[in-house]
Design a protein around this nucleic acid. Structure first.
Lengths: 253, 253
DNA sequence: CTATACGTTGTACATTGTACGCTGTAAAAA
DNA sequence: TTTTTACAGCGTACAATGTACAACGTATAG
């Protein structure tokens, strides 16, 4: 799964689209038969059910009963469409207030909301977002999530870094989880079958004398999870580490 | 940047390739003019200099003075080539022994070695690796890295999870850093120019009354780093959090 | 009623991974 | 030595993708 890049074109245009700025109402010619929202929605539901790699302009268009090029009157290109999809998904996230609750609980809730986002929209995990979108969805999300870290005595810069760290953990987890599902789905071999097929070679090559720790720890972990990687376990373990890591910062403040 | 998936084909064949098993020496016909290593090396240096998205079979072949289809006598396909590139890169990583040093120092060294991998081979950050490669490079890396967490009183399962957590942090950081560089490079607008262009709209739309925390914290972070995201700062902050998170686990053990 | 701006569409192109079949070579079989 | 044959390398081909471009038709402004 390759990361999709977003937003190559005119950034001002993208911002207008994100905030649904009217953008100079056309005074002549035929009316548009669709809306940006309809395009974003169709693209999102296609990506939800078939994954990012199945998201093509032709398929989105076809779901809307038009032809690929028609979409280009609504969005400047595929990259911007991804931006809009992501910001819309952010906007739809649940934002349960945890005001007054202990900070660990608040942070856990933020993580859960983001986990839920990636479970609902697995494609969202592989869209990169270093240059923040600055759309209404993103801003609402950011505002809500900052509240969970407010009042802990951290500086603004620390709060931002802490949130980035937390979100980065959840996103990395989501990518791994999605990959794990994808790998299982496409290989047609079950985990057990795979090991059976490759046991002869591996026995010869994975010498416990050469790799004592690796063979011991690897098989212990494999036995525990029934697979090389268990998303559920990794989430619990990782979130606990993130919370403990933030605790050290909070207690120092 | 879309994640690249790896290894769709026959897994046994891939394993043989990873371990450079002779795979039944051909007894008739012309000798091969290249080697798997040469192909992997050419592909790696292409990806190093031009990025994963520029890595095409035609370009790799051309760098070797052959035609695209020739590569398919050496590797089953592009996915497997990526596997081989990654395992080879793992194999080349420096493995400084930190035996006897305090565990934080050992873990910091592992993180630094991985960071260095992603700086040398930015493409490596976007290759997904949930189903472990089980090649010689990967195994050597795993064995080495487990040693950093050995003897802390953690269970094998905890050690594996802790390492996964650490590596996941470094990889997520590397992806963000790579995206950050890519975004800056391709947008042609500097961070400052971008803000200048979009200030009018943003002033209207990012109302501090609606987003009090977001505007305050966002601009504080932006001012501190001179950008929305600072890879260097994020690495230091994140690694400190990871270490503190692991410390809680270690102290409990 | 005419002219113009603009939504929609068909066609087209460059780029990708890789399937398939041809050609020539070098070792095994005669 | 001659014949056979497996296999390396190559040329061609195809389906899929994002999107540029120009033709077409429509609805409003004059």
């Amino acid at each position: 799964m390759a990361d999709e890049r977003t937003s190559a074109g005119d950034p001002a245009r993208t911002l207008q689209l994100l905030w649904r700025e009217p953008a100079a109402v056309p005074r002549r010619g035929p009316r548009q038969g669709l809306t940006v929202d309809a395009v974003v929605e169709a693209a999102t539901s296609l990506a939800d059910t078939s994954g990012l790699e199945a998201l093509t302009m032709r398929k989105v268009a076809s779901a809307l009963g038009v032809v690929a090029m028609t979409l280009y009157t609504y969005v400047p290109g595929k990259a911007e469409l991804l931006d809009l999809m992501l910001d819309a998904a952010y906007g739809r996230m649940s934002r349960t207030s945890t005001e007054g609750r202990p900070w660990r609980e608040r942070v856990t809730a933020v993580a859960a909301e983001n986990r839920r986002l990636f479970e609902t929209h697995p494609w969202a995990a592989s869209v990169s977002t270093v240059r923040p979108l600055l759309g209404p969805g993103q801003m609402g999300k950011y505002e809500h999530e900052l509240a969970a870290l407010d009042g802990l005595g951290l500086s603004d810069v620390e709060v931002d870094a802490a949130l980035t760290h937390l979100l980065s953990f959840v996103q990395a987890w989501a990518r791994s989880a999605a990959d794990s599902v994808a790998a299982a789905a496409e290989s047609s071999l079950s985990e057990a079958e795979w090991w059976a097929v490759n046991a002869p070679l591996l026995d010869r090559v994975l010498d416990p004398a050469v790799y004592p720790l690796a063979t011991r720890v690897g098989s212990a972990a494999g036995a525990e999870h029934g697979a090389a990687y268990s998303p559920e376990f990794a989430y619990g373990f990782g979130l606990a580490r993130v919370l403990d890591g933030l605790a050290a910062l909070v207690e120092r403040a």
